[in-house]
């Protein structure tokens, strides 16, 4: 019996050193001051960061919704295709993930910049000339980089596969005899989707939402590169406390802790909602 646990030791050690200890440190730092005494000082100023919290949650929420709106239909259509087609599409969806995250985001910068790909294309097509002539304005580019829209775009682009894959893998596993049974009982294709496929795909939707929302809330690179510091997010705020000139790991830990708690509450509510959904239908 003992033998079995030996295999788990490397993982347990890894988790202890790199997850549990840092977590304890975060909690410790959050409740202590630079001088080492216990204090709640770090949490006292949290109110002034309310707008950052709100913005982070809001942008992550937007990105998640957009991912869901793009990802669900994509997964559904994909699951209906032949196996060859499915393989190709999954490849295409995974492909960007083989490229370095930073590189991909830099690429978006050069696309969205004021003198970037899109604006240059529009200029060379004479779109701006046309607009300026009609409306008697003088614009030479559309501002895209350094906006919240660009941040959301970056999030959607980077996290979309995390929405598509779980939903797709759940839908594709739905037993085709269930669909036939529903048809047999008189359900047309809309009803089959509404009563069978959608409810059965909910677990995939829930894990997709989780996998997009959590990294989106805490991202800092995307907002830094595409938001250009105009819209600071939680991730940026925390990073500044550890690496930036605002160096204050105690405050950073406190913010991290609050963010973790907010995410945990979100996940808890969602899982409850998910369970409730399942149970409401099953029981």
């Amino acid at each position: 019996m003992r033998r079995r646990y030996i295999a788990a030791i490397p993982h347990v050690v890894w988790m202890a050193v790199f997850v549990v200890v840092p977590l304890i440190l975060v909690v410790f730092y959050a409740f202590t001051s630079a001088t080492g005494g216990l204090t709640l000082e770090n949490f006292r100023n949290m109110g002034s960061y309310m707008s950052v919290f709100a913005r982070s949650l809001w942008l992550a929420f937007l990105a998640t919704i957009i991912c869901l709106l793009i990802g669900y239909p994509l997964s559904y259509v994909l699951s209906k295709e032949g196996p060859g087609m499915q393989r190709i599409f999954i490849m295409l969806i995974m492909l960007p993930m083989w490229i370095n995250f930073l590189l991909r985001t830099y690429a978006w910068m050069s696309i969205l910049e004021n003198t970037g790909l899109i604006n240059r294309l529009l200029t060379s097509l004479g779109i701006f000339d046309l607009i300026n002539r009609i409306f008697n304005t003088n614009i030479t580019y559309i501002p895209m980089i350094n906006t919240q829209g660009a941040v959301v775009l970056g999030m959607v682009y980077n996290y979309l596969p995390f929405m598509v894959l779980p939903i797709y893998s759940v839908i594709v596993k739905i037993d085709s005899s269930l669909i036939e049974a529903a048809q047999d009982l008189g359900a047309g294709s809309m009803t089959v989707f509404k009563r069978i496929i959608f409810p059965l795909s909910l677990p995939g939707v829930l894990s997709g939402i989780t996998m997009v929302f959590v990294p989106a809330v805490s991202t800092f690179i995307i907002s830094k590169l595409l938001g250009g510091g105009t819209s600071i997010l939680l991730g940026d705020l925390i990073e500044m406390q550890f690496l930036g000139n605002a160096y204050n790991p105690h405050l950073g830990s406190a913010i991290s802790l609050i963010m973790m708690i907010i995410i945990m509450i979100c996940m808890f509510v969602m899982n409850r909602f998910g369970e409730g959904e399942e149970q409401a239908v099953i029981m």
């Binding site: 005899s177 269930l178 036939e180 059965l200 239908v281 099953i282």
Partner: peptide, 10 residues
């Protein structure tokens, strides 16, 4: 159906 195909969510 052969394997009943009952709807597991209902």
């Amino acid at each position: 159906f052969q394997k009943y195909a009952l709807f597991p969510h209902l």
